[in-house]
Design a protein around this nucleic acid. Structure first.
Lengths: 251, 251
DNA sequence: ATTTTATATATGTCAGACATATTTACAAGT
DNA sequence: ACTTGTAAATATGTCTGACATATATAAAAT
């Protein structure tokens, strides 16, 4: 009975990729607490039937994600949550594909979205190009079409992510653009927890449309308000309480 | 005369680290345009007198930073600026240690700070603990002491970074906390471009003190305004024009 | 002209040996 | 006792050469 016995063994992990994902999931779900020492390289190699090379590559990506820390001679330890690179697209990817991430992570990421996304939507209303609007409409159409049958929840979520990412991109600021990666985890979490009822979806669509229209009409204040209402609805579905003061530009 | 002839050769690059930094600097400074094909692994190995192993590790960190893309058989290409992971601490580190980064990067990062930092300072005023305040005071004292002689500009910049990072940390949200890494590049750029005159520094210190006091007194609105004034002063020193609407919470 | 096949190119992976950093234990010296 | 020095054990870092796989290019067959 060692530290590895409860870790799922991936039979044919294709490439370094899946290997890193498996390890990341173990950490992100909180199986290993920060400060815990990691199993040794060679033990992990045996456990996953991987060459030392692949294992090292996998662990290297965990290092660059801030999840672990390695020092020659000492070993590998899990870093504190505060050090995890939550804004690294790779970490977002891992979180999105995780069934049950740290509740704290979901909460804090969503709190962050709540405070900034109305503002980003303002920026989009000010700077969106015709192409941005086209992308927005494609994503919205996809959301509407995939809303009817519940078999396409995956597709619906993808369109949802695309819709919001387009807004971040439409700010036409590189930093906000990068931050769009953060959206996938919380939206994916949404479809896993809440059972989208048709009535709710209809309401959600209406709110999204209001956001899109405000951006098209270049009305930042309306865009801010509309985005806020989308987020409040989502927060309700997720069971997150929004106590913080939201973010708003002066008149 | 090949693509490598103008790249600085690092005589004794200690470890994969320096190697990756050198390559990253070449890209971040815009020497290789996005879409350009990278030299081959083996050529790079010869040029830097590095083993294939170290070179691959170095390039792997560029990949995880979103700077390059590699595909077996095709080669390595530089990715578009929009794909660079500007929120990756490693990228910030590279940018901070770069003499002359892309002007666009500096501009967009600073525009981002201008829009969010007053809000983050509000959060700090609402949530800062006694420990946060202590850190803030240490950083401020360091700034003040290192302001007198111009030989300690490096130290002054470090305290400056620490001051602002403490504010992000004091928001007590993991995402904002991570974003603190973004501060170093723009602050480092500041001491490289503007020649801090003593009078200016004195004014800057006064503004920082106002921020600190507002946080201590738990006055979010005052904190917002004070932070804005710090940023406006810095923007003037940097030569950045602030046309965008800043970010503010409703009353 | 299209498809197939061969070949060159570049990155990905493997395996084994060796190098280096850290800790621990033990022993000697004061 | 306390320090200091040395040696061994442990774990990660690096080197080397060979081979695997994916992509593009060009030639050959239909």
């Amino acid at each position: 009975m060692n530290a590895l016995s409860n870790i799922p063994l991936v039979p044919d992990a294709g490439g370094t990729f899946a290997l890193a994902t498996t390890l990341a999931h173990v950490i992100l779900s909180g199986y290993w607490a920060p400060g815990d020492i990691f199993p040794r390289e060679l033990d992990l190699c045996r456990h996953f039937d991987a060459s030392r090379n692949r294992m090292r590559n996998a662990m290297a990506s965990l290092v660059s994600a801030g999840l672990i820390e390695r020092t020659a001679g000492r070993g590998t330890v899990v870093r504190d949550i505060a050090d995890w690179h939550l804004l690294d697209p790779q970490v977002s990817e891992w979180m999105a594909s995780l069934e049950t991430p740290h509740p704290q992570l979901i909460r804090e990421v969503y709190a962050f979205r709540l405070s900034v996304e109305p503002y980003v939507t303002e920026l989009a209303a000010l700077h969106a190009t015709a192409q941005d609007l086209a992308h927005l409409e494609v994503a919205f159409a996809g959301m509407r079409e995939s809303a009817v049958d519940s078999a396409r929840r995956e597709a619906h979520a993808d369109y949802d992510v695309a819709f919001h990412q387009t807004i971040y991109r439409a700010s036409h600021n590189l930093v906000w653009h990068q931050m769009g990666h953060l959206l996938r985890p919380s939206i994916m979490q949404l479809i896993k927890t809440s059972h989208h009822q048709v009535g709710n979806l209809d309401d959600s669509l209406k709110r999204h449309r209001r956001v899109m229209d405000a951006i098209r009409l270049q009305q930042p204040d309306a865009a801010h308000e509309a985005a806020k209402q989308v987020l409040e609805r989502t927060a309700a579905d997720l069971g997150v309480d929004l106590k913080g003061r939201p973010l708003k530009t002066p008149a």
